[in-house]
Nucleic acid binder design. Structure first.
Lengths: 104, 104
DNA sequence: CAATATACTTACCAAAAGGGAAGCACTATC
DNA sequence: GATAGTGCTTCCCTTTTGGTAAGTATATTG
């Protein structure tokens, strides 16, 4: 992808979904497009730098699409691509597991 | 879990499954118990330190069980717990996604 | 009696990831 | 003319993660 070598498909997927914010951003976009500021509000602990850095990475990887409305003040929306949407089944399982695990 | 605070169930699951080796080890154990040395052979790029460190973490988290056969030379086996086995559906989806994504 | 095999641990170090604070661009509004 | 609003970027620093090399224990084998 970026020249990295993956041991197996699971390894590849983990590299896309791992990291502090990558997965959470994809998951936050499950309901449709969101603006930068909406994401920021939703992922409470993220800061500007990490958010834009991670969104840029996800865009390069073909997981999200960036739409700049060319307005002032700026308005930019992010959406999942088809590949991004296909990650959602993974997160649905993660949510179920996490919910179950945390009450055990 | 270790005092960390999770934003949501997905965040929790990502913390268990993320990291360089955690997910790959769980996935490698899908077929049943494996010895330390077998895991090491299978996860080619892992070194002793990372393998035992990660296994210890997974054991503390209740994802794997450690069985020491008290022999010399040592023989130790690792198995998925029930919670660990329930992670497998996640990895199955990851494998499918990764395989598809890498050929696009 | 030396070598082998196995599952670790320890000390040390390098790299990567993550984060804080501040600044920028630019229009509209007061 | 100052202020607000928004999406970034840059610089710098801390923390975390990952990795290498070497060592330990001890029954068994040659």
């Amino acid at each position: 992808m970026n020249g990295a070598i993956y041991y197996c498909p699971v390894d590849l997927t983990l590299s896309v979904v791992g990291g502090r914010w990558q997965g959470l951003i994809v998951w936050a976009l499950r309901g449709g497009p969101k603006r930068f500021s909406e994401l920021k509000r939703e992922l409470v602990a993220v800061n500007d730098k990490m958010l834009s850095q991670t969104l840029k990475l996800l865009a390069e990887q073909g997981i999200v699409t960036r739409t700049d409305f060319q307005s002032v003040p700026p308005k930019v929306e992010y959406t999942l691509t088809e590949n991004g949407r296909q990650l959602l089944v993974i997160f649905e399982k993660m949510e179920a597991w996490g919910a179950h695990y945390s009450e055990a």
